[in-house]
């Protein structure tokens, strides 16, 4: 796979997937469906009302880890970015978590009595992890994202009511940044518990699939946090300052 390749707007959407199939879930998060025919990236994006430049920035960054046009991404509307992040939350909770849980359930079924205790420990660890993930996402969906939408609206109107200024002073994005605990650390721990310490299981293919899934999710979560920390937070901070100056 040629990772130095940069996807462009006039490339065929079908070719994008042929060149890097790991983009399949990423494209799915934009709610884009298959059956593109020979349509270009731009044409498909227009059809689904997705900003093609934002779409390209995301898939290029995902395709090549060294390519992250943070400056460029900052030019996109926060509403677009938040919609993407929100879809990613759903993707984790509705698709990835059940997939991983299924694999763990299979391990529980197939395990020998001797190893059952250990698999149960992993199951328990993962359940707690999912609970934390839910709390983290719910906080973003219910508190942080609505706040960001308000800020962006006020900044576009160039006329911020006092209430917005008050909101900024009471709970600037900085507080969220401080609370932004790392979902990644626990995931790495889970991987290492399996790779380094789980006694051999008799169902090797399931444990292999489980590990592969954990690596994939980890990558997704890393990208997700990167977007939040390096793109969303700095951009919101900038808007907050601008709004506070005008009132």
């Amino acid at each position: 796979m040629n990772t130095s390749l940069v996807f462009t707007t006039n490339m065929r959407m079908a070719d994008v997937i042929h060149r890097d199939y790991s983009l399949i879930p990423v494209i799915g998060r934009f709610r884009i469906e298959y059956g593109f025919g020979n349509k270009t990236v731009k044409e498909v994006c227009d059809e689904y009302k997705v900003n093609p430049w934002f779409f390209l920035a995301i898939i290029n960054a995902y395709h090549n880890r060294d390519y992250f046009p943070a400056d460029q991404v900052k030019n996109f509307s926060l509403a677009d970015i938040i919609t993407y992040l929100s879809n990613t939350h759903q993707y984790f909770l509705e698709i990835k978590v059940p997939e991983i849980q299924n694999l763990i359930n299979k391990l529980l079924e197939e395990s020998t009595v001797g190893n059952l205790k250990n698999i149960k420990l992993l199951d328990d660890f993962f359940s707690k992890y999912v609970e934390e993930m839910k709390i983290h996402f719910a906080h973003e969906e219910e508190v942080v994202f609505p706040y960001i939408r308000e800020i962006e609206k006020a900044s576009i109107k160039m006329d911020a009511p006092q209430s917005v200024a008050k909101m900024i002073l009471a709970q600037p994005i900085e507080t969220y940044e401080r609370q932004h605990d790392n979902l990644e650390i626990k995931l790495t721990d889970l991987k290492n518990l399996i790779i380094k310490f789980l006694p051999p299981v008799n169902c090797r293919h399931i444990i292999q699939n489980l590990l592969m899934e954990l690596f994939r999710v980890e990558r997704d979560i890393n990208d997700h946090s990167y977007m939040e920390e390096k793109v969303v937070v700095p951009k919101v901070k900038q808007l907050e300052q601008e709004i506070l100056k005008t009132v």
Binding site: L121, I185, K186, T188, D189, N192
Partner: peptide
Amino acid sequence: KLGVKTVSALTVYALIN
């Protein structure tokens, strides 16, 4: 040495062993 950081993962390690 272990490559796990969180208390809950260290606990799992202790229980496995």
